[in-house]
Design a protein around this nucleic acid. Structure first.
Lengths: 264, 264
DNA sequence: CGCCGTCTTGACGAATCTCAAATAAAGTGG
DNA sequence: CCACTTTATTTGAGATTCGTCAAGACGGCG
């Protein structure tokens, strides 16, 4: 293991518009991977014994620091590693053959991204930091090695992959069958739950994404998102002030999210 | 391995509506798993050496025969095995918390289904035969064992899981950003490609699903599907006669599927 | 031939998109 | 910290797509 790499040379930066040429910045090889971010035990790393944990530690080759808007990996780029988010949050964006794009997911501390690349050795989405973030790279061949050596980790890994499938399934259900208002309610409830699992407030938070990005994720136009937010606000279910959101009536939100979809 | 189980006791049957209580029928423990269904090498079983192939064979505990409309596994039911489709085709249906449902995929010979259950030990979709079909069950603990023993299979398995993620991603892109006409064009092109990979005609085929099911898959109402089909027909891109479809102008279909989405 | 489920077609309305413009917020340079 | 520029967000009006309701045609099956 090499000597610690100096922290982040302070290059002049602009955060907007996103400088597409900005490159992820390696910070250090020596900092340990941390994975105790979630209270639910759905992490890729939960429930492992000491030896395995050690082996996982050795997996980490790089710790990467990302400024807001920086691209961690790009679509159609060779896949070599998974990335465990250590701090901050990222979005993954699907790129259609013809340039249309859609936010496929928002990922925060404790999530592992890059799974889409396994099947074709090429990423089919791109990952972009929504804020100052940090990730650890886990070279995939070593991940597979570890999976063979350690059944518990193998199990975790398979579960993690499968849960990603399930996550996308519910998103499909959302996109395919729910009207906008319910999509938005569901979105907030899911965010709240994920914040909660990470020990943050689940009733009050700052959105890390723009209206545009919310719309893209939910299959809605930005104007529609804006109007729906206003409606939920008027109805007293939430309080919105720019990117600051408070959930005022969780029960009503759930009710809204769970009743009266299009086809019943 | 037990003696061959008698073929399918001929119970009185109705195909419509689907008798929900009908149970999959075990046919035989002894027939070998076959996996040479695809010309692309994306099968879970491609490229394995002889020893591994043998081990995979031993994986198969049951060969299950399904009549049209029969449920292979139900949502919220314990997950124990994956299922390799040997003949016929099935749909997987997502069931929302509130009863809304959506077809999540159509699966044919050579596909493996049930991956969604790994993450939570419970299936979160249900699988239903669209026609007379046959599947082999692969107990999941033995799948994992095989993956540990055989890196090539492990790799295949991980790729397969990842491709399922990618498949769903493109479906999300479809549901989230494309107008109905393009969804339908994309649907036909994908079907054609899958038939081709299995050695069937890619320009002429019989749909195994109802308009209702197509609509569910594409996030459209049945009437909309019907109208869009008529439109594509009028435009001379396809020929539709009930469930018989011919793709008349593949180039134009691709053009349609790949241009002029909602946000460009 | 008649039943029943599937599919098509028409008329209408609701949800959502598009276009356009105003306002608010954030970032930049001095 | 201010003035300026750029970007993000909101809001309105009108167009469009798609869903809903309803009726009839089609097709398989007893």
């Amino acid at each position: 293991m090499g000597a610690a790499v100096p922290l982040l040379t302070e290059a002049p930066q602009r955060t907007n518009p996103v400088p597409r040429w900005t490159v992820p910045h390696e910070v250090s090889r020596d900092q340990p991977l941390r994975w105790t971010y979630r209270t639910d035990n759905t992490s890729l790393f939960s429930g492992l014994d000491v030896d395995t944990a050690k082996q996982i530690q050795d997996l980490v080759t790089m710790r990467i620091h990302l400024r807001k808007g920086v691209v961690l990996f790009r679509a159609a780029t060779p896949f070599t590693a998974l990335y465990a988010i250590q701090a901050g949050s990222l979005k993954t964006v699907l790129i259609g053959e013809d340039g249309e794009d859609q936010v496929a997911g928002y990922h925060m501390v404790g999530d592992v991204i890059g799974l889409d690349g396994i099947g074709s050795d090429v990423h089919d989405c791109e990952a972009i930091a929504l804020e100052e973030s940090e990730v650890c790279s886990l070279p995939f061949d070593r991940v597979e090695q570890t999976a063979r050596d350690c059944p518990a980790f193998q199990r975790n890994f398979h579960r993690y992959l499968s849960r990603e499938i399930a996550r996308q399934s519910s998103l499909m259900l959302l996109l395919g069958t729910m009207p906008g208002e319910k999509r938005l309610a569901t979105f907030f409830l899911e965010l709240a739950q994920r914040y909660q699992a990470r020990g943050y407030s689940s009733s009050e938070f700052l959105l890390r994404m723009t209206r545009q990005e919310i719309g893209s994720y939910l299959g809605l136009q930005i104007e529609t998102v804006s109007r729906l937010l206003a409606r939920l606000h008027e109805q007293g279910l939430i309080h919105v002030q720019g990117r600051a959101v408070k959930l005022l009536d969780r029960a009503a939100l759930k009710q809204l999210a769970h009743t009266g979809w299009r086809r019943e």
